[in-house]
Amino acid sequence: MPQLNPHPWFSIFITSWLILIIILLPKIKSHIPNNSPTNKKNMLTTPMPWTWPWT
């Protein structure tokens, strides 16, 4: 069985980890929302008082 003599074992080991960490991880990370605070509330415009028409 070729698996019992995994010939380029080092290259398979390194490659699989590199692809997981460098390529797949950022892709999956973009799907998972993070819990960091947003500045969404700061960007909301404060309601301005009604100045027209002068009633």
């Binding site: 070729p2 010939h7 290259s11 490659t15 699989s16 390529i23 950022p26 892709k27």
Partner: peptide, 30 residues
């Protein structure tokens, strides 16, 4: 069992390509 031996071309293992192909179907969400 030959289907399980990792493919090579000119002694270069093609494992990288076979694994890279998997990541194509996962586009980055923006």
């Amino acid at each position: 069992f030959d289907q399980f031996s990792s493919p090579n071309i000119l002694a270069i293992p093609l494992m990288t390509i076979s694994l890279l192909m998997l990541t194509i179907i996962f586009p980055m969400k923006h």
